[in-house]
């Protein structure tokens, strides 16, 4: 489903963020990408939705090279990939309802579908009562749950989570991981970049370890070993 083929990314300053990585991920997998800060985890994930273009090598999504996609194909692909970030990246001037509706609108959903889907997905993440609040009126944990709701509302094939628990306390961290596990159980492939040892060890799924841009371990049922 996802395949990185000898991918290298060198930024303008000559810094090698990712070096010669080959990695395959099957549909329905839950994959942790672990490593210290600056190991190249974020760059690796960003290449999947073409926010970063590899210097050399190719990234495939559903057997198609992302680099060869036209602009409209790329947008269509992005609507099929949910993204969650450490800093939530919600639209601050839109209500929670509008934030989630936006993802549905760009995917071409009609108003009736949106009216039905948004409350449903907010119920899933336990925020049905915050529908008309603005992001800044919510706590960090709540904002991250809104981001998850936005990421899954289009029922994407892949969910990318880049340090989703980095700004959260242990209780909220646990909640977010539980939601991600539930989503994975429903068939969505989950890629989760983190350096939180406890969540990696507690879930017991595939762990890809990176160090200085290189892939140094790939364990089917791994632990955090750095």
């Amino acid at each position: 489903m996802i395949h990185y083929d000898k991918v290298t990314k060198v930024y303008n300053g000559g810094q090698h963020a990712v070096e010669d990585i080959t990695l395959s991920i099957e549909p329905g997998e839950f994959v942790f990408i672990v490593g210290h800060s600056g190991a190249g985890k974020t760059t690796l994930l960003k290449m999947l939705f073409a926010e970063v273009i590899p210097t050399s090598g190719l990234v495939y999504f559903n057997s198609r090279s992302i680099n060869d996609l036209s602009n409209s194909e790329l947008l269509k692909m992005r609507r099929n990939i949910g993204t969650i970030f450490q800093d939530f990246r919600l639209l601050p001037t839109k209500t929670i309802y509008e934030n989630i509706a936006f993802a549905l609108e760009v995917a071409g959903k009609g108003d009736d579908d949106i009216k039905a889907d948004v409350p449903h997905v907010l119920e899933l993440v336990g925020l049905a009562d915050k529908m008309w609040s603005f992001p800044l009126e919510l706590s960090g944990g709540e904002q991250q749950r809104v981001a998850i709701a936005r990421a899954i509302v289009n029922q994407p094939a892949v969910l990318i989570a880049d340090e989703p628990t980095g700004n959260l306390d242990p209780i909220n961290t646990h909640d977010v991981v539980e939601i991600l596990k539930k989503i994975n159980n429903l068939g969505t492939t989950v890629l989760l970049a983190t350096h939180n040892r406890s969540i990696v060890d507690s879930v017991g799924k595939r762990v890809v370890t990176m160090d200085q841009g290189r892939l140094i371990r790939d364990d089917r049922e791994g632990k955090y070993t750095l």
Binding site: F49, E51, S72, L75, K76, M77, R78, R79, T83, R89, L90, L91, P92, T93, F102, A103, V106, A107, R150
Partner: peptide, 12 residues
Amino acid sequence: DEIGVMNIVGAS
């Protein structure tokens, strides 16, 4: 930042 998010969500 908002424009960046819209990009990632797949807005034309």
